[in-house]
Design a protein around this nucleic acid. Structure first.
Lengths: 104, 104
DNA sequence: TCCTTATGAAACCGTTTGGTTGCGAATATA
DNA sequence: TATATTCGCAACCAAACGGTTTCATAAGGA
């Protein structure tokens, strides 16, 4: 089973969860209210996110507070880094044909 | 079938293909030599990447030259943008406990 | 204590994924 | 023309994915 941040953010629901948790930590029930699925489905996504260490569970009584753990998102950012130069230089501003010529 | 850059870069082989194509355009055969799979498997990945418009196929005789199309990678970059502030501010430099306090 | 609420885990299901093999079409070469 | 090479497509397969329903556990409230 692949467990890395790239696979984690492939799912749109998981991306939305991360965005919500970026505001403040939330319980599974509170999160589930934002989606058109069951609490258990959200819980499964939280499990994946926890295994990827993109999220951390903090118990509080009978509730569980999930918190964003931003560190591993940086891995995605670092991977993108190697392409950033390509879309920031002036060649990539031109159309695709020119890009092709440059690389061919 | 979901076809977006997030799903495209979830697969490690596809990420490696994108990195290789960032250097210069390549044919499916040339690409396949870099991996421990068949040409057809690489071809399938190229199909996905093409559908996501992360790659563009340029025919040349009986060969096909695949070129990186960087535009849609920016979508991932823009999504990450909303988290970048979190790991760039001084709070995220502290350990996870502090991060929790800040968000709780 | 009894009941409700919050949660995770397990079993199950249909679809998607990533891979293989085999094929046919089209281009280059002898 | 005949042959070899490059490639995409279709069929098939096992494993993973995303979802549901059901159940057990544990904590709060009447």
């Amino acid at each position: 089973m692949r467990r890395d941040p790239f696979q984690a953010i492939a799912d749109p629901t998981r991306r939305a969860i991360l965005v919500l948790l970026a505001m403040h930590s939330m319980t599974p029930n509170a999160l589930a209210e934002h989606f058109d699925t069951t609490r258990q489905a959200v819980s499964k996504h939280l499990r994946v996110l926890t295994e990827c260490e993109l999220v951390r569970a903090v118990p509080s009584g009978r509730e569980m507070h999930y918190t964003l753990q931003v560190r591993n998102l940086k891995k995605v950012d670092r991977w993108l880094e190697q392409f950033r130069a390509l879309w920031e230089n002036r060649f990539s501003q031109l159309d695709d044909v020119l890009t092709t010529l440059k690389k061919g």
